[in-house]
């Protein structure tokens, strides 16, 4: 590891100014990904700006009924928070499906969004990687790519984004708050991460000198039936092969009123299934309809040599989760009528 300076930021402005002043600086949250990448030599910051003690560590309800999550709230605390468990179960489930208890205790909300791909070629300095060193090529496209993207990849990069949390945020229509020390802005969660295109070195839309300061969970998707399901090589403590986050509201007669659907581990970003959502909205909440809509979404898939399995896996996960949500709603309705 290269020697580096260290600054513990007391305010967002102080952190933003340090980032602006030192182009080689990196923000340090829980460090569960960044410190690992520094050990591997993938990241070589000249300065670490420690933002983990910034006063952004609360989950609070806002007057409009939305819930604001500070960027330094730890993943374990967010998953356990009563507001999240009660109103946004998909987010709690996604967080708990990720990493280990130790890592969730350290990892922050902002850091989870900003974590890098686990593509083995990105993490291996002996391999070409356009994301790590632009212009060197991609060792994954024709190499080991069983875990890689089937949607939205480019000639330059076939990596996936590893976050479970971000998939739930996309399905919930959450927003990501950004602050450069002078002005703030926010972005929809499903527009925060980018597809690789010709610039796979850019994972997100964050600008130089900006910090993620929080995430807002909207009132509109609060308390809707929602769930996360993840397929992986072992029962726990593994990255997704495919995952799905779904939010579904149906009317009394079984019509889809609201649906939010996002896939994880299929693309360079959480993949919001907008075509499937449009196909479902206003239609019947049945297994057949879910299957047709999800298949329409996945028509865009372009699997690589060794990851074609992801397409039927993702399809089956999504149909299963949506069907369960629809069935649970119907059961609740029956119970209410009976009582």
């Amino acid at each position: 590891m290269k020697p580096f300076g260290y600054l513990r930021a007391g305010t967002v402005r102080e952190a933003a100014e340090a980032l602006a002043e030192h182009p080689g600086a990196r923000c340090l949250g829980g460090g569960t990904n960044l410190v690992d990448l520094m050990k591997l030599g993938v990241e070589r910051p000249g300065l670490l700006v420690d933002v983990s003690r910034l006063p952004l560590d609360t989950v609070e309800e806002l007057p409009d009924g939305s819930v604001r999550v500070g960027a330094t709230v730890r993943n374990s605390d967010l998953a356990a928070h009563p507001l999240v468990r009660d109103r946004y179960p998909v987010l709690s489930q996604a967080l708990l499906a990720g990493a280990s208890g130790q890592l969730r205790n350290a990892a922050t909300t902002g850091g989870n969004l900003l974590q890098r791909t686990r593509c083995p070629h990105f993490q291996d300095l002996s391999k070409p990687c356009n994301k790590r060193t632009p212009g060197t090529g991609c060792a994954a496209r024709e190499g080991t790519h069983r875990d890689h993207a089937v949607l939205g990849h480019s000639e330059q990069c076939v990596a996936t984004h590893p976050s479970d949390m971000a998939v739930a945020l996309a399905a919930l229509d959450a927003r990501v708050e950004l602050d450069d020390g002078r002005t703030t802005r926010d972005l929809p969660a499903d527009r925060f991460h980018r597809l690789p295109g010709d610039h796979p070195e850019r994972d997100t839309e964050i600008r130089p000198g900006e910090l993620v300061t929080g995430v807002v969970l909207p009132a509109a998707t609060a308390s809707l039936p929602s769930a996360y399901r993840k397929a992986r090589d072992r029962a726990s403590y593994a990255f997704a092969l495919a995952s799905v986050a779904a939010v579904l509201r149906t009317s009394e007669d079984g019509t889809v009123v609201h649906v939010g659907l996002a896939f994880g581990a299929l693309a360079h970003k959480p993949w919001r299934a907008e075509r499937a959502e449009a196909a479902l909205r206003g239609g019947p909440a049945t297994e057949d309809a879910f299957a047709r809509a999800v298949e329409r979404e996945l028509e865009a898939a372009r699997p690589l040599r060794d990851n074609g399995y992801k397409v039927p896996l993702a399809r089956n996960l999504a149909v299963d989760v949506l069907t369960r949500l629809a069935t649970a709603r119907n059961r609740t309705g029956t119970t209410e009528e009976d009582s």
Partner: peptide, 16 residues
């Protein structure tokens, strides 16, 4: 998230 690099100009030390 630009490419990993080093600004090499940090004035503060490497110990605390």
């Amino acid at each position: 998230m630009g490419a990993a690099h080093d600004d090499g100009t940090r004035a503060t030390g490497h110990h605390s």
